[in-house]
């Protein structure tokens, strides 16, 4: 466990410090916020995909549930931001519990069913028939709680908690047990690992993280549409960032976000189609030539990646 603390101090703390100080020297706070959000999402997805091997294609469902959990609490309960953040977490956790039976599915079945589940939640929330409750497709406005600096800080705290979790998984016995489940659930059971409980915990943790990210996203931007909160790109970006850096490590997803989301912001804003094209080619090359991510370049030579 001492190694976990050391890895957190050497990898995560500098990142957190840099992101905390960055708004003082760089004016595009929304961009910095997006970096934090994708770091949270990539690490949250890492907890379930990296450690247990389930590919949650509909991961954005938890993010959207969190965003709407926050928004509904503010709109209908007049909640202040922090209780509303709790509602965001609860909403995502509740969705996670409802979707727990999906963990019985494996491989592509799970990925597809999870995608369908996220789409179904989106279709319910954006349905005009529910306009009185969710504002349907017309989106929500939360100007009463708008507080960019505070929400930026809360996002950083969520990121810190997520990084602590991943550093722990990377070094604790529980993380090892999860990886055993990923490699072979039958063998893991014979090693005494409670397979169902292990992956349910990882699933719910990962749902909670995405829900909190969605909540703080709703708070920070304060005006959004259902198609923003349930944009499939959130799932895809989180998957690709994690894969690119190296799943089941702490450093991998961080590198993935910094490099690829950085690239996205250099070329993506002005000509989206060209970015989409480059991105597509990059994904294909990544899967074909570096399926275990950047981290594998180092681990292959016998070194450990934090």
């Amino acid at each position: 466990m001492r190694r976990g603390v050391r890895e957190f101090v050497t990898v995560a703390l500098p990142l957190l410090a840099a992101l905390a100080l960055a708004p003082l020297v760089y004016s595009n706070e929304l961009l910095l916020f997006n970096f934090i959000m994708f770091l949270i999402l990539a690490q949250g997805l890492n907890a379930i995909y990296g450690f247990t091997g389930y590919l949650p294609f509909g991961y954005v469902g938890f993010f959207g549930a969190g965003a709407y959990g926050f928004a509904l609490a503010v709109m209908h309960l007049d909640a202040t931001p922090l209780p509303a953040m709790a509602c965001a977490g609860v909403a995502a956790l509740a969705l996670g519990v409802v979707l727990t039976p999906l963990l019985r599915l494996s491989g592509a079945y799970f990925a597809i069913a999870n995608l369908a589940a996220a789409q179904a939640v989106y279709q319910v929330i954006s349905n005009p028939a529910l306009q009185d409750i969710t504002k349907g497709p017309y989106g929500v406005t939360l100007s009463s709680v708008f507080a960019p600096a505070l929400s930026y800080g809360v996002a950083l705290i969520i990121l810190a908690a997520t990084l602590i979790l991943v550093a722990w998984l990377r070094n604790a016995r529980f993380g090892l047990a999860l990886q055993a489940i990923r490699e072979d659930p039958v063998s893991a059971a014979m090693a005494g690992v409670a397979v169902v409980r292990g992956r349910t915990i990882a699933w719910l943790l990962s749902a909670l993280i995405a829900g909190l990210a969605g909540g703080v996203f709703a708070w920070h931007i304060s005006v959004f549409y259902p198609e923003t909160a349930f944009d499939l790109s959130f799932s895809i970006f989180a998957i690709v960032f994690t894969l690119f850096g190296g799943a089941a490590t702490q450093l991998g997803p961080i590198l993935g976000v910094l490099l690829l989301y950085g690239l996205y912001n250099v070329i993506g804003i002005t000509v989206p189609q060209y970015f989409q094209l480059i991105y597509g080619v990059l994904i294909v090359l990544l899967v074909l030539f570096l399926p275990d991510g950047l981290a594998s370049l180092v681990t292959r030579r016998g070194f450990r990646v934090p």
């Binding site: 090892l176 990886q179 055993a180 490699e183 063998s187 014979m190 005494g192 690992v193």
Partner: peptide, 27 residues
């Protein structure tokens, strides 16, 4: 406990980690 007809180790983990998991969880 048991072994399998075709062995089913945790492929991407080290030999020590493989055994450690069983020693930790299955004692």
């Amino acid at each position: 406990n048991r072994t399998f007809q075709s062995p089913r180790p945790f492929l991407s983990l080290t030999v020590r980690e493989n055994v450690e998991i069983a020693a930790t969880y299955g004692r």
